[in-house]
Design a protein around this nucleic acid. Structure first.
Length: 424
RNA sequence: GGAGAGGUGGCUGAGUGGUCGAAAGCAGCGGUUUGCUAAACCGUCGAACGGACUUAAAUCUGUUCCGGGGGUUCGAAUCCCCCCCUCUCCGCCA
């Protein structure tokens, strides 16, 4: 969501930048609706001013014992006219907000122009993909063989795109969650949050999933609640409609939640294994930043996420998404991609974004200090990390010739074992 | 699930049909006083969206906003209806 005044004055340059991401602003419609709406507003306001004045006059006259019947009649008719004008204005307003709510954020100037993911630019690489003296297996073979991952029974219990973790597999998931939360809270300065796993419409609107992306969500029947697709939703909305203390910024929060995604439109993509599931676990990083320092905060947030991979000894690369691949609400996004020997490719494991004031404006999250006017904060978030994909990265990268999996050093205190062997 | 009490500005809290965008206090901001700090005193202090003026800011002006939505009325924070949320008690439950 844009600041209306800013948008009006800069529509040309905004449109040019949005064209980079493949979005066309209907300028004609904007100008038309905007001016129609303003005219309607002015007209109705003028009448309201008149009504207010006359109503007050009636009050005074009545007190003085005068006859006000004629006046009352006239004002009543005025009221009917106002109701009609307001209805027109409301219709225009609704159309206008819909138009505005559907316009994506403007990419930051440092974001490379491009049409698709193919135009993303790698900014750095860390680690070396492991070399194997044998042909490494994919986790969808290794997991079931080790008896730590079960797709068939998950399908029986629920359906496709679900998994059951068993034994050390379940423990590895839990170890990763604890490890990530511990690093972020003890070493990176984040405060842990455990939010609700479902949220209401206003929250989804605030972070930008609604109204445009309802199809991606699971809605709970008989309620207005949706299952969270990421902790970004409940955690960013923690401060919706609040005015924060500017001095307290940045606020850094981390949260573990399951994430639920309908994955509509991704049929046939990543169908094997646990890469793309209807439910997965994630540790999320969220920041509320002063506007002037939000890009520094994006850098450090991305580094905080990368740090987890480094400690786990997993090779990765970081790319900056081009204008063609960046998300709806984001102004700049880094994807961190981990090396997967089974797939023989780098696969997204974290997405770190600066939304600038786009979400804050929708969610009314402001900050002020002293007499200063409250200003919208900048919101950021990133996965720190997607636990399921970290799980499979470990299984694939640390696999041995005999089918066992070595547990990374840092996870051993959490796992209580050094190696995962078949436990069928 | 049953019964009751509430939701007012950054916070606390008064206001039950017109003179209320809203008393008072706190916090904030500006100032006076003052070795420093503190205190005291004076002043100031809500937001959104329009319009005028302006390069802009400032200023002036209009409308709307007292949990959300609807209604009654010439006129609603105040009366009526629906919904949401919070608190207390009872029941149930991990």
């Amino acid at each position: 969501m844009y600041d209306l005044g800013y948008f009006r004055n800069n529509i040309g340059s905004i449109a040019a930048r949005l064209a980079d991401r493949g979005f066309t602003i209907d300028m004609e419609a904007f100008r038309e609706l905007d001016s129609q709406r303003r005219v309607a507003l002015a007209e109705s306001e003028k009448l309201k001013a008149q009504r207010n004045a006359e109503s007050q006059e009636i009050g005074k006259l009545k007190k003085a014992g005068g006859d006000t019947a004629d006046m009352q009649q006239r004002v009543r008719e005025m009221g009917e006219l106002i109701a009609k004008l307001d209805a027109d204005a409301a219709t225009l307003d609704e159309k206008f907000s819909q138009l505005m709510a559907g316009i994506p954020n403007t990419p930051h100037e440092s974001v490379p122009a491009g049409k698709s993911a193919a135009d993303n630019v790698e900014v750095r690489r860390w680690g070396t993909p492991p070399k194997f003296a044998f042909t490494p297996k994919a986790h969808w073979d290794l997991g079931p063989e080790l008896g730590i991952l079960d797709f068939d029974r998950a399908a029986k219990i629920t359906g496709a795109r679900f998994a059951v973790y068993m034994g050390l597999g379940a423990k590895l998931e839990r170890a990763l969650i604890n490890f990530m939360l511990d690093v972020h809270t003890k070493e990176h300065g984040y405060t842990e949050v455990l939010p609700p796993f479902m949220a209401n419409k206003d929250s989804f609107y605030g972070t930008g999933q609604l109204p445009k992306f309802e199809a991606d969500l699971f809605k709970l029947e008989g309620t207005d609640y949706y299952l969270v697709p990421t902790a970004e939703v409940p955690v960013t909305n923690l401060y919706r409609n609040e005015i924060l203390d500017l001095e307290a910024l940045p606020i850094k929060l981390t949260a573990y939640t399951p994430c639920f995604r309908s994955e509509a439109g991704s049929y046939g993509r990543d169908v094997r294994g646990i890469i793309r599931q209807h439910q997965f676990q994630k540790v999320e990083l969220v920041k509320f930043s002063r506007p002037e320092s939000s890009y520094e905060e994006l850098e450090s947030l991305t580094r905080d996420a990368e740090d987890i991979l480094q400690r786990l000894g997993l090779a990765y690369r970081t790319v900056v998404l081009s204008t063609g691949d960046i998300g709806f609400s984001s102004a700049k996004t880094y994807d961190i991609e981990v090396w997967l020997p089974g797939l023989k490719e780098y696969k997204e494991i974290s997405s770190c974004s600066n939304f600038e004031a786009f979400q804050a404006r929708r969610a009314q999250i402001r900050a002020k200090s002293g007499k200063e006017k409250a200003e919208f904060v900048h919101t950021l978030n990133g996965s720190g990390l997607a636990v399921g994909r970290t799980w499979l990265a470990i299984i694939e990268n640390y696999q041995q010739a005999d089918g066992s999996v070595v547990v990374p050093e840092v996870l051993r205190p959490y796992m209580g074992v050094d190696i995962i062997r078949g436990c069928k």
